[in-house]
């Protein structure tokens, strides 16, 4: 254990994952979270205004802070700049917890532990996150103390990227039981567990300098998650979606995306256009990857929320927040 806690700056502290981390820190009794956010937003937890992509702004926000959690979410430039700003700040930080993602493993299959090689050639989000991890590794090589967390699919009430999107698509009967196309593992982790894991990562000395997967041991398959969520939100009977339909969805993704951009530019109502289902998401549904959760259990030893509770919470939140 480290000595007493202290102030923890959570960059991206108002995001879905960031807020879960802030809440867990506040509950810990040991750490005092400070939200590092771009625009002032009231809340019980204090904040410091900070543009995570601006090294000067980050350095100022770090004043008097012993720990940083980097939970910034955004495009490639934002992700890289924020990671660099933290690692180059020379603020004498006790520890940095960097939120990465399982996407860094790329499109591999099988049981994947933290020693697996990263998808260095990956483009898009995965590529950015691999690059960010490299920045953190350089920081560690230079004597910095950092922990990299690689969560799988972070779900929970309020999560638009997963719970919200999946529920919307289930309600529209565009997702359901996907057969072999949904046979991949859903390496789901409750947002609250990411918070608890982050608190543990700030405490556990043996975590420093390494990466740790955050997933569910014995994860469910995507079909199971989709069917259970569908039933829980009343999108029944949950349809079987065949390969032909999914291929069509994949083909429509780009035109729909472009349509949305154009509509936004022209000030038209974007809501009328169906939400695209990106081909990368469809590939993930079929990916036979299981995150090895052994190291997280051994080193971070946080209490896990059951899949049942996570899915029930997501469904309840969706039903309350999204009227038909």
């Amino acid at each position: 254990m480290t000595a007493a806690g202290g102030q923890v700056l959570v960059l991206g502290g108002d995001g879905f994952v960031g807020s879960a981390i802030v809440a867990a820190l506040a509950r810990s009794g040991e750490f005092q979270p400070v939200r590092g956010i771009r625009r002032a937003r009231a809340g019980a937890v204090p904040f410091r205004l900070c543009d995570a992509t601006d090294p000067g702004s980050v350095r100022r926000a770090l004043d008097g802070v012993r720990y940083v959690v980097n939970a910034v979410f955004g495009g490639d430039a934002t992700l890289r700049a924020a990671t660099r700003a933290v690692c180059d700040a020379q603020a004498g930080l006790e520890r940095v917890v960097h939120l990465s993602t399982m996407s860094v493993y790329g499109e591999v299959s099988g049981l994947v532990d933290e020693r697996a090689v990263l998808a260095v050639d990956a483009g898009g989000y995965a590529g950015s996150k691999v690059a960010c991890e490299a920045i953190v590794q350089t920081y560690v090589a230079g004597g910095g103390a950092a922990v990299i967390l690689r969560p799988g699919v972070v779900m929970g009430a309020g999560g638009q990227q997963w719970a919200g999107r999946l529920c919307r698509l289930l309600r529209a009967r565009r997702l359901g039981d996907l057969g072999e196309a949904g046979d991949g593992f859903c390496n789901l982790i409750d947002a609250r567990d990411v918070g608890a894991a982050t608190v543990a990562a700030l405490r556990a000395p043996e975590a420093v300098g390494s990466a740790i997967n955050l997933g569910t041991p014995g994860p469910p398959r995507w079909n199971e998650v989709l069917v259970r969520l569908g039933r829980a939100i009343g999108a029944v009977p949950v349809p079987r979606i065949g390969r032909r339909r999914l291929a069509m969805e994949a083909r429509l993704a780009v035109p729909l995306h472009v349509g949305k951009l154009v509509a936004t530019r022209c000030g038209l109502a974007v809501g009328t256009l169906p939400e695209p289902i990106p081909p990368a998401l469809l590939r993930l549904f079929a990916q036979q990857i299981r995150l090895d959760a052994g190291r997280a259990s051994a080193v971070l030893a946080f209490e896990r929320t059951s899949v049942d509770v996570t899915l029930a919470d997501c469904a309840r939140w969706f039903l309350e927040s999204t009227p038909k």
């Binding site: 299959s109 099988g110 057969g179 072999e180 046979d183 079987r240 079929a286 036979q288």
Partner: peptide, 18 residues
């Protein structure tokens, strides 16, 4: 059942198994 063709349905699982 769909009816499920076990070969098509479980091919990926078998293909990736070590």
């Amino acid at each position: 059942s769909c009816p499920t063709d076990f070969g098509k349905r479980y091919r990926a699982r078998i293909a990736q198994s070590r």
